[in-house]
């Protein structure tokens, strides 16, 4: 008889290649980055062989980095709020369209997710630049000849990031709206509720899990966004990701860059995990 694999071991053979690949090429680099953040750096002699938390003390204590972290957090919060404000109504509108229009507009709203972030951000850079459309419009309307530029501004970054990330909010809310039994809305109407009341008391609460998970996705992606802040914000309006980039590729202070990256990762995971816990606790009873 042929030697055969014990049934109990089969799943480990099937997942084995992935697990080994990930352990070697994800586990090892992540651990090394953590270790690197514990070394100090000297501008003349490079990375030191010592073990220290000095980098963490520096990043967390330095007002320069505090400002960058604060700005990143504020940006993420603002982008998330705007995405909720415009993404939730849009998802609702989409769910109300006839099926033909719905598939067209789903394509319009979700399609950009497949287009490179660089390209999408470039579009805003063209709007925002000193000789961009914004300036031309302002001049044509007689607001003076000064170029109006949103390049390198917080506002510019916010607009571009909302554009890049709002599809995630729409799709997430859309998914939970899909699960709603349309008859529950009819039932509300039949019981004498107005359309507005049905929306507020019946539809919105059922869409809440989608709004929350959309928020977490948008928040996490904004907090770690690189391409859009790098192009629109540039050196003048640094966020955590662009600051880490500069530490690595311009200043060459790798340990400090690694520290920023580790802190970003911890913040990211912390937010996702606590948000998930919150969602589970609040909605576990209602939604399976």
């Amino acid at each position: 008889m042929m030697a055969s694999i014990q049934p109990r071991k089969v799943p480990y053979f099937l997942t084995g290649p992935g697990v080994i690949f990930f352990a070697a090429l994800l586990g090892a680099p992540m651990v090394m980055t953590l270790l690197l953040s514990l070394h100090s750096y000297d501008f003349n002699t490079g990375i030191q062989p010592d073990w220290t938390l000095a980098n963490y003390v520096e990043v967390l204590g330095d007002s320069y980095f505090q400002k960058i972290f604060g700005r990143t957090f504020g940006l993420a919060l603002l982008v998330t709020v705007i995405c909720v404000l415009i993404g939730v109504p849009e998802a609702y509108v989409l769910s109300r369209l006839s099926s033909r229009w719905r598939s067209v507009f789903l394509l319009v709203v979700l399609g950009p997710l497949l287009i490179s972030v660089v390209v999408r951000t470039l579009g805003w850079a063209l709007f925002f630049g000193g000789n961009g459309v914004l300036t031309m419009t302002a001049q044509a309307l007689g607001f003076g000849d000064e170029p109006v530029s949103l390049m390198f501004t917080f506002t510019g970054m916010t607009i571009a990031l909302v554009h890049v990330l709002v599809p995630f909010m729409v799709i997430s809310v859309w998914a939970s709206l899909q699960k709603i039994d349309p008859q529950s809305e009819d039932a509300g109407l039949s019981l004498g509720a107005s359309k507005m009341t049905v929306l507020r008391r019946i539809t919105l609460p059922q869409a809440m899990p989608g709004i929350l998970s959309g928020s977490i996705i948008v928040f996490a992606l904004t907090a770690s966004a690189f391409a859009t802040p790098a192009i629109i914000g540039g050196r003048r309006m640094k966020v955590v990701a662009t600051a880490a980039y500069d530490e690595y590729l311009s200043t060459l202070n790798w340990p400090l860059g690694a520290t920023i990256a580790i802190l970003l990762l911890l913040a990211n995971i912390g937010i996702i995990v606590s948000y998930n816990k919150l969602i589970e606790r609040r909605f576990a009873k209602v939604f399976e």
């Binding site: 997942t15 992935g18 697990v19 990930f22 090429l25 994800l26 090892a28 680099p29 992540m30 090394m32 980055t33 690197l36 996490a220 907090a223 770690s224 690189f226 990701a241 880490a244 980039y245 690595y248 790798w254 860059g257 690694a258 990256a261 580790i262 970003l264 990762l265 990211n268 995971i269 996702i272």
Partner: peptide, 24 residues
């Protein structure tokens, strides 16, 4: 655990992955 491990890159900012691979 295995499924969470294989899905974990979704939770890691690309910047962090970039930094980690550069050094590795």
């Amino acid at each position: 655990v295995i499924s969470a491990f294989l899905l974990s890159p979704l939770m890691i900012p690309h910047l962090v992955l970039g930094v980690a691979f550069l050094q590795f």
